[in-house]
Design a protein around this nucleic acid. Structure first.
Lengths: 124, 124
DNA sequence: TCTTGACATGGAGTTAACTCCATGTGATAA
DNA sequence: TTATCACATGGAGTTAACTCCATGTCAAGA
């Protein structure tokens, strides 16, 4: 797949895809004879994984660490798992925080509805 | 309350507190005769609200709009509510996204545990 | 052969949200 | 009265994560 196809498929700009590669987040993508990127299934999977993790707010730094260990082979499984566990914890607490903010927002919105309900909207 | 007390209480740097004020996010904080900030209950409530919303990822821009409308009085209630509803929607979808990433992480971690379980850690 | 269009690279620029800094002031402790 | 100290202000600098740009190459259509 060309870079623009991957860009469309995952809704990530080509600039960002190249950026991910040069900072070592996305493992080297295969090239055609003339040097163009030719994403294979592995590359696509990585892109998809990165997109998912980034959208959930995992920092690029942690993802680079993870991907780097990955390239280093099976012996790094332990360390990779540690990263995932750490990020999992962080994610859980962000979700909790967001949920409580959400219910606060809900209450606030209900209040606004209340203000506007019995009378203020005029009776005919 | 002095700025440093508020800073400790809400765990927000004094720089950030002043920053919020100058960008119009935090309504003007009362001052002492000599010009020092002297946070009253209202100011504190605003700080707490902002902190909560920011931690959940609401953009400063939206919060400024909200606060600005607030200052403009009751006639803006409708518009304020609209902002809250909009942000609520955004928050919900972020939470959903994060939850699905969380379960993906969970599965991945289970996989790592699996790899390491029956045998690889040596018997004895 | 010439032109066009997608892509490559290295490096600079942007955005959001702070964070830091230089300089100045008023209240208080020594 | 002098030295601190917390605080004030305006403006510059930082960080993460992109995004944009100038310049160059290559393959394919006119």
């Amino acid at each position: 797949m060309t870079i623009s196809e991957v860009s469309k498929k995952y809704d990530i700009s080509t600039d960002t895809l190249r950026y991910y590669e040069r900072i070592g987040l996305l493992p080297h993508v295969p090239r055609t004879k003339s040097g163009l990127r030719d994403y294979d299934e592995n590359s696509c999977k990585s892109v998809e994984f990165i997109k998912c993790m980034r959208n959930a707010g995992l920092p690029i730094e942690a993802l680079i660490e993870y991907m780097t260990l990955f390239k280093e082979g099976d012996s790094t499984a332990e360390a990779r798992m540690a990263i995932l566990i750490e990020q999992r914890e962080a994610l859980i607490s962000r979700i909790e925080e967001m949920k409580s903010t959400l219910s606060r927002l809900d209450r606030k919105i209900e209040m606004y509805k209340g203000i506007c309900s019995p009378g203020c909207c005029g009776k005919k």
